[in-house]
Simulated assay, not measured.
Amino acid sequence: MIDVFSDVIGFIIIVLIFAVLIKFRVIKIVSKNGYKYKQSNHKLTLAYKKFNGFDYYYFKFSQGRTMTLSYDVEVDEGELILEWRDRKQLLWQEVFTENTQGSITAQTQNRRYSVRIEGKHTKGGCRIQFTEKDSQ
């Protein structure tokens, strides 16, 4: 009887710990419904019926080049966060709650970069394209 009681108490404690970790965003639950993506060398296209969580997409560029990230974001509901990062720092971040187009330009210091996509109960999609300033 005591073993069953201690097992139940242990289970309740573990569930409470996970609930606290999820609440304070130490653990994030990712859900993707109707999530489709296509990635090529310098392009990324996403579409989703429902997206909650985050994902990373990786790109390689030559060092010392001026690169422009152009984006076309569609937000039907919720919120989408885009980030352009190198390995050490955040280069750019924007939060979208409505359809938006734009671009951001930066000088590449490294070869490897990532785009972090975070959805907060969002529906929609986005298109991202990198272009080298001299190749437009």
Rank of each mutant, 00 (worst) to 15 (best):
T108V: 00
N33V: 07
K88S: 10
Q39L: 10
S62Y: 12
Q136A: 09
Q39M: 10
D3L: 10
S6T: 11
F18N: 01
R112W: 00
K43F: 13
I14T: 14
I81E: 12
L90V: 13
S70C: 04
I29A: 01
D86Q: 01
K133R: 07
R65I: 08
K49H: 03
Y37I: 02
T45F: 00
K38H: 09
V4W: 06
K23C: 00
D72P: 06
R111F: 07
A19D: 07
I22P: 04
S114W: 05
Q129D: 06
I117P: 01
S135Y: 12
R85M: 13
Q101M: 13
G124W: 11
K28I: 12
S62V: 12
T100I: 07
F54Q: 04
N52P: 03
A19Q: 04
Q107H: 11
G119F: 08
I9S: 14
L21R: 01
T108I: 08
V115R: 01
F24K: 06
N33F: 00
F24Y: 13
R116L: 13
S135K: 15
I27F: 00
A19H: 00
N33R: 07
T97Q: 15
E74L: 15
K23N: 02
K49C: 01
F61H: 09
E98T: 12
L90D: 12
H121E: 15
W92N: 06
T97V: 15
G10Q: 13
I2Y: 14
L46R: 01
I13V: 11
T66R: 14
L90P: 07
W84T: 07
Q107D: 09
L90H: 07
H121V: 10
W92V: 08
I128S: 02
L16Q: 04
I17H: 06
Y37M: 02
Q136D: 05
S6G: 01
T100A: 08
T66V: 13
F24M: 02
D3C: 03
Y113N: 06
T105L: 03
F54A: 03
Y56F: 14
E79Y: 07
N110L: 02
Q107Y: 13
I81M: 10
L21M: 06
Y56T: 02
Y35N: 07
C126D: 12
Q129R: 08
L90T: 11
K49N: 11
V8C: 09
M67D: 03
Y56C: 03
I29F: 10
S40N: 05
R25L: 02
S135E: 15
F5C: 04
K43I: 09
L82Y: 07
W84R: 04
I128N: 05
D3M: 04
E98K: 11
R87D: 00
F130M: 03
F24Q: 02
R127Q: 11
G78K: 06
F11K: 11
F24T: 09
R127M: 10
F5S: 06
G34I: 08
K32C: 05
L44C: 04
E118C: 06
S135A: 13
D76N: 14
W84A: 08
Q107N: 09
G64W: 14
I81T: 12
T131R: 08
L82W: 05
Q93P: 00
G78D: 10
N99G: 02
T97K: 15
V26W: 09
V8G: 03
